[in-house]
Design a protein around this nucleic acid. Structure first.
Lengths: 371, 371
DNA sequence: CCAATCCCAGTAAACCTTTACCGCAAATGT
DNA sequence: ACATTTGCGGTAAAGGTTTACTGGGATTGG
């Protein structure tokens, strides 16, 4: 049996111009172990050598190779964040907060967006696993069981919003939708509204369902009847808002207020109502949810229910960190919501007169498109 | 001299439950090389074995470790994308397009945002290098020379918008701001506007400067005087728009139209004008830039100058790919812009009457805050 | 002045994969 | 039936880092 043959396979260029830890070690006249220890701030390294090493690092503009690092240490320093879609302004605001907190804690963020498509969710998960994310926050619809198992089998900590898979290593961020939504309904009730529509999000999203449920409960508490015909399922986009408003306008007796599952829907509804000649809040009041930055800039500015992105982000990172450090995790965090009153809500005066005007007008301009 | 001591340092658990390429090889009764070749679709592998391997992979739910892969192959399959800020809706739309094209080409995307802060730019670059991004697209302000050198030294291909560092491996996406902006000015001129203000972006951004320059040039072409007092530097946010509009309102004779360096500014301006009792477009017409999705939903909907995010994204990825494949790259790509007319522009009628009204009102409500 | 102790830098294994190269077995040619 | 080619699977090195363990030198105690 012939012995193994030794060969060399340098990829290109001379060894000297490759910029790795060996180059630093050579320049600083120390071993690579010392360089590594210096970089990782391990206290057993002599300050004098550390200084030499840092100088060499600066001199060479050396950056450690994250991949090699992660490979050997088993720590990628990567947190995954899976959101629904980045073009809904709520999510960039959330991502920004999440990233900020993650960086504060020495992590980087891997962003995935599902666009509400289970296939894309699958590929997001795949990416998270392939890149060895140490933990993943899922801020979109509920994750399917087999995928969940994949992550669970690999002992990757997970954080969810609302929905709670009962397993070790998983935490839930419970959003107290009820508080904010009740405030909203009470606000409308106090103004005198008795007929309130709700434009829901896609009901396969747990968060959308929770919001709807909270709305119904709040109506009951205020003694306002639930009108099923005024509960419309939308899709959390402005276009969804346009469509939902159009469906509401089909009815003879309009509701005097419309509450929406998120601000994008509310913006669409607002737009559609204005286009149809209805005044907000004169004829119909509108309340959104999320309180995205843009809500304040609408005309009229949008009354909305705020859920702190900062709190959500902070809680998510915090939960993941807790799991990662192995300390017994607090399994549930609660994020609360509250009403921010602006201009899109008011007294339900004059509804009927304007409605007659609107109905008459609708007849003559039947051909107008939604846009 | 004692010979080296052999030891073993398994991280935890029994070897069998680690989920690496060896496990797959064992289950499929082939060597790890065959597994690797199968995964990478190298044609010299016998179909029968390939089938066994794929079955084993499926069975074990095996995912190759990206880090190890990248380490040995020298290819991270990662493209960097550095943007200004993700909370400006223009960028999520851009990011989405970029990611889509990148994924189509087998890459993943590393996103960095600078928030217009050179320090953050530095850390973005650092991340890109540490994670071995194969190419980086810089879609924000110009990059500083030393940082540029860092990337250039590492032979990382770069793509910029507007600004053109003249080096190998770098491409420029030239945006033809002039075309769209001229269309906008011509549109206003045709409506009868003679006094047009411009709310610029932060002028250290090359793109903001280009837009301003294009505006001035377009005015000249249309024979409209440039009024320096009506050229305001903003910051590409809605708040910047509010502030800029406030400054414009300080003047006795208002411009009859305001063009903005981006839509967020335009939204802020629109808001401020409405709050001040001015009608858009009755008193003042407004044109934005970018044509973000939200522009259509404003009331009045915003006339804006569109630059295709999809084209931009596609060109950026394409440029990077060209560099990576080593073929002689086309160094410049041109993205064009065009006007989208909506409701925020109209004839400059009745300006003076309303202005008198507004001036009178301003006196009595001097204490009102901007919001 | 020698021995024991301690501190700390260096050596080399290990992380998981890709891939160059070798060699075995089967197929083909004579 | 033997030699030659071909096809393909296996072995092991390499990629850049962390880190367990070793051992050398300095310091301290006797």
């Amino acid at each position: 049996m012939a012995g193994p043959v030794r060969r060399t396979r340098r990829r290109s260029a001379s060894k000297s111009d490759r910029m790795d830890i060996h180059a630093v070690a050579k320049l600083a006249h120390v071993s690579i172990a010392t360089v590594s220890r210096t970089i990782n701030h391990i206290p057993t390294v002599n300050p004098k050598m550390a200084k030499r090493v840092w100088e060499a690092i600066r001199e060479l503009d050396y950056f450690p190779n994250t991949q090699a690092r992660a490979l050997v240490s088993g720590r990628s320093r990567l947190l995954g964040l899976i959101v629904s879609e980045i073009t809904n302004p709520f999510f960039p605001e959330l991502i920004q907060g999440f990233e900020e907190v993650a960086v504060e804690n020495g992590y980087e963020v891997l962003i995935g967006s599902t666009n509400y498509d289970p296939e894309r969710m699958k590929s997001c998960i795949r990416r998270m696993v392939e890149r060895n994310a140490e933990g993943v926050a899922v801020m979109t619809f509920g994750i399917e069981q087999p995928l969940l198992d994949q992550l669970a089998d690999r002992k990757i900590p997970l954080v969810f919003v609302d929905v709670a898979p009962n397993r070790p290593g998983m935490s839930v961020l419970r959003v107290d939708y009820h508080h904010g939504i009740r405030q909203g309904v009470q606000h409308l009730a106090a103004l005198g509204h008795r007929s309130i529509a709700f434009v829901a999000g896609p009901l396969r999203l747990h968060s959308a369902q929770s919001r709807l449920a909270a709305f119904k409960k709040a109506l009951q508490e205020c003694g306002i009847p639930v009108e099923e015909k005024f509960i419309i399922e939308g899709d959390h986009t402005m276009e969804g808002g346009l469509a939902a408003a159009a469906r509401i306008l089909e009815h003879k007796n309009l509701p005097t207020a419309i509450m929406c599952s998120n601000d994008m829907l509310a913006i669409g509804v607002l737009h559609k109502l204005s286009r149809s000649g209805l005044q907000v809040p004169g004829d119909v009041s509108i309340i959104g949810f999320d309180d995205i930055h843009m809500a304040e800039m609408m005309i009229p500015s949008l009354t909305s229910i705020q859920m702190s992105r900062a709190d959500l982000a902070r809680a998510a990172v915090s939960a993941l960190r807790t799991h990662l450090e192995g300390s017994t995790p607090k399994r549930e965090y609660t994020i609360d919501t509250h009403l921010v009153v602006r201009e899109s809500t008011g007294f339900p005066r004059g509804t009927m007169t304007r409605l007659r005007k609107f109905t008459a007008k609708r007849a003559e301009s039947a051909a107008e498109s939604t846009q």
